[in-house]
Amino acid sequence: MIKVLFFAQIRDQLATSELQMPSDENSNVQMLLTNLKTRDEKWNKVLSNARLMVAVNQTICNDNIDLSSGDEVAFFPPVTGG
């Protein structure tokens, strides 16, 4: 399974902070995003945000990175600390 986390506005808009997705149907970030977007129109809209950031195993990356079971993927808006 792949652990998927959502933070800040993304978590609020989806009303979800964490879920698990099967690793065999989500072999890279792009596939995972596509599958999450098919959940419903709200998920499609929120995850289509052009400024969405992705981290795999706690490192920021782009969406063509490969995934395997046990990976942790996080989706969040641009960061605003400091």
Partner: peptide, 14 residues
Amino acid sequence: IMDYLKTQAPFWKK
């Protein structure tokens, strides 16, 4: 460090 922190470290302000 501040410029990187502002754009790369996962903090969010509400």
